[in-house]
Computed example of a mutant assay.
Amino acid sequence: MTAVSVSSEHTRSHPSPGNSPGAMVVDDVLGRFVRESQSLPGGGCLDNSFFSQHRQLEGRTVVLLLDTEDTAEAQRLLPRLRRAVEGGTALRRRAVEAVVLEFSASPVTEEELSQAQADFLLDTIEVDDGRDVVLHLTDSCGEHVMDGYWPAVRFDAEDQVIDVTIEA
């Protein structure tokens, strides 16, 4: 069993300390996830509604994202994220294949699948409910998806593809 700890680096006056920006969830396998905030022009502050970290996977920086503001919920989501990271290469390959099959107008050749595997890179692994995981991909050549958009593939608890979308 993997040990998980929860702490808070700093708190704000309104939210509870465990759910405020700067709150942190630490996993002994994946490391530290932080709920960050961003300064806005004019002095305001935008609090992220998720915990995240950046990690090197497949030779590139990938965002690992726990889509919740609550530290207890983030802790509950960690095992699913761990499993997705461990199977990341296989999940990415299946995600790319799902994107190609979903959006191709004609039968797909092995050459097209191979080229898509090279063109679509893993950008984000997101867990939002403890069962499903979403892989967000980047079109590295800009030939498959319009600029500002990216494919996202949702896998269920058994790592079966259940949805393929284009997001903005």
Score class of each variant (00 low, 15 high):
residue 99 V to I: 12
residue 2 T to L: 01
residue 126 E to M: 08
residue 157 A to E: 08
residue 119 D to C: 13
residue 76 R to G: 00
residue 92 R to F: 10
residue 151 P to K: 04
residue 38 Q to N: 05
residue 4 V to M: 01
residue 44 G to R: 01
residue 5 S to P: 11
residue 59 G to T: 12
residue 145 V to C: 14
residue 83 R to I: 00
residue 27 D to G: 05
residue 24 M to C: 14
residue 104 S to I: 11
residue 148 G to W: 00
residue 110 E to K: 10
residue 55 R to V: 12
residue 79 P to H: 08
residue 18 G to H: 10
residue 66 L to H: 01
residue 105 A to D: 15
residue 58 E to K: 07
residue 109 T to V: 05
residue 35 R to C: 02
residue 2 T to F: 03
residue 107 P to T: 08
residue 162 I to M: 07
residue 119 D to Q: 13
residue 118 A to Y: 02
residue 14 H to T: 15
residue 168 A to S: 11
residue 37 S to A: 15
residue 22 G to Y: 03
residue 137 L to D: 10
residue 149 Y to L: 14
residue 168 A to D: 12
residue 122 L to T: 08
residue 118 A to P: 00
residue 117 Q to K: 01
residue 64 L to P: 01
residue 25 V to C: 07
residue 52 S to A: 10
residue 76 R to V: 03
residue 77 L to Q: 02
residue 68 T to D: 02
residue 83 R to F: 00
residue 73 E to Q: 10
residue 86 E to I: 15
residue 75 Q to G: 00
residue 114 S to G: 02
residue 84 A to G: 08
residue 75 Q to A: 11
residue 67 D to L: 06
residue 129 D to R: 00
residue 51 F to I: 06
residue 35 R to Y: 03
residue 56 Q to H: 14
residue 153 V to P: 03
residue 25 V to M: 05
residue 106 S to K: 15
residue 132 D to W: 00
residue 113 L to S: 10
residue 90 A to G: 08
residue 124 T to R: 05
residue 31 G to H: 15
residue 160 Q to W: 03
residue 11 T to P: 06
residue 123 D to M: 09
residue 78 L to G: 05
residue 144 H to T: 15
residue 59 G to I: 10
residue 60 R to V: 14
residue 159 D to C: 01
residue 30 L to H: 09
residue 99 V to E: 11
residue 87 G to D: 04
residue 146 M to S: 15
residue 75 Q to C: 08
residue 155 F to M: 05
residue 58 E to H: 11
residue 72 A to Q: 02
residue 71 T to D: 12
residue 54 H to D: 13
residue 92 R to Y: 02
residue 62 V to S: 04
residue 87 G to W: 00
residue 71 T to F: 13
residue 59 G to D: 14
residue 155 F to W: 03
residue 65 L to I: 04
residue 33 F to T: 07
residue 155 F to V: 04
residue 6 V to Q: 14
residue 15 P to H: 04
residue 48 N to G: 01
residue 96 V to R: 05
residue 104 S to L: 06
residue 49 S to H: 03
residue 166 I to V: 06
residue 120 F to D: 12
residue 151 P to H: 10
residue 15 P to Q: 05
residue 51 F to C: 04
residue 16 S to D: 07
residue 37 S to G: 07
residue 21 P to M: 07
residue 80 R to C: 04
residue 21 P to L: 09
residue 123 D to V: 12
residue 103 F to W: 11
residue 156 D to A: 11
residue 29 V to E: 09
residue 2 T to Y: 07
residue 32 R to C: 08
residue 61 T to N: 15
residue 96 V to P: 09
residue 133 V to L: 05
residue 162 I to S: 13
residue 18 G to A: 11
residue 103 F to S: 04
residue 51 F to V: 04
residue 45 C to T: 14
residue 57 L to G: 12
residue 53 Q to P: 04
residue 15 P to K: 05
residue 69 E to I: 01
residue 37 S to Q: 13
residue 75 Q to F: 08
residue 142 G to P: 14
residue 46 L to R: 09
residue 45 C to H: 07
residue 144 H to A: 15
residue 100 V to S: 08
